[in-house]
Amino acid sequence: MQSSLIEVRTGKKEVVHDITPQCAAFARDAGGDGLLHVFVPHATAGIAIIELGAGSDDDLLTALGDLLPADDRWQHAHGTRGHGRSHVMPALLAPYATVPVLGGELALGTWQSIAFVDLNVDNPDRQVRLSFLEG
C-alpha cells in the first residue's frame, strides 16, 4: 500500500476545501487500478464527495450550521463558541472516503469532487492521509 500526507490550510473560517487535484495526482502517481482511501486524522473534520463550485459547498455549510449551531449548547466547550459541534460533525460527515481508481484516474462522477470539510476555526493547519490499495 502506498500512503502520503497532504497539508490543508483552512484559515479561520468554516470551509469546504477541494482536495480533488491532490487526490488525482496521488492516484496518477500510484498508477493502475485500485482504491484511493482518503482519511482525516483529526477529531473535528470530515470528507465529502460532493459537487463543488455551484453553491453546493455553501449549502453544505448552511446545512451543517442548521444541524450543529455554533452556540453554547455543547458540553465540549473549550475553544471558540460552539466548538463542541466540530467534534460531533464527524459522526454525520465521516472522516474518510474511498474512491475507485481505474488506470490511475479517479472514477468519480461528472460533477463529483473530494472535499475536506472543517467547522473548527481554532486550527487552520490540517492534514489528510491518502492511501492507495492496488487491486
Results as ranks from 00 to 15, higher is better:
Val128Gln: 11
Lys12Phe: 09
Ile6Phe: 00
Phe116Asp: 03
Gln112Asn: 11
Gly103Asp: 14
Gly79Glu: 06
Gln75Phe: 08
Trp111Gly: 08
Arg85Asn: 11
Asp57Cys: 02
Ala27His: 06
Leu119His: 01
Leu108Phe: 07
Gln75Ala: 15
Gln22Leu: 14
Leu130Cys: 09
Ala45Gly: 08
Ala27Lys: 05
Val38Phe: 05
Pro41Thr: 09
Ala24Gln: 15
Arg129Ile: 10
His78Thr: 00
Leu35Trp: 07
Asp18His: 11
Gln75Glu: 14
Ala24Lys: 07
Val99Arg: 05
Ala115Gly: 03
Thr98Glu: 02
Phe39Trp: 13
Trp74Val: 09
Val117Ala: 02
Asp18Ile: 12
Glu14Arg: 13
Tyr96Gln: 15
Ser113Trp: 04
Thr44Cys: 05
Asn120Arg: 04
His17Asp: 02
Gly109Phe: 01
Glu7Gly: 11
Val128Gly: 12
Gly65Tyr: 10
Leu108Gly: 05
Ala107Thr: 02
Glu14Phe: 00
Leu35Gly: 01
Asp57Ser: 07
Leu119Tyr: 11
Met89Val: 03
Asn123Tyr: 03
Ala77Lys: 13
Thr110Tyr: 12
Leu5Asp: 14
Ala54Met: 10
His42Ile: 07
Gln127His: 09
Asp122Cys: 03
Asn123Cys: 00
Asn120Asp: 15
Gln22Lys: 15
Ala27Asn: 10
Val16Cys: 14
Arg81Glu: 06
Val15Glu: 10
Thr80Met: 00
Leu133Cys: 06
Ala43Phe: 01
Glu7Trp: 00
His17Glu: 13
Ile19Asn: 11
Val16Thr: 11
Gly11Cys: 05
Asp66Glu: 14
Thr80Pro: 12
Arg73Lys: 04
Asp33Met: 07
Val38Arg: 05
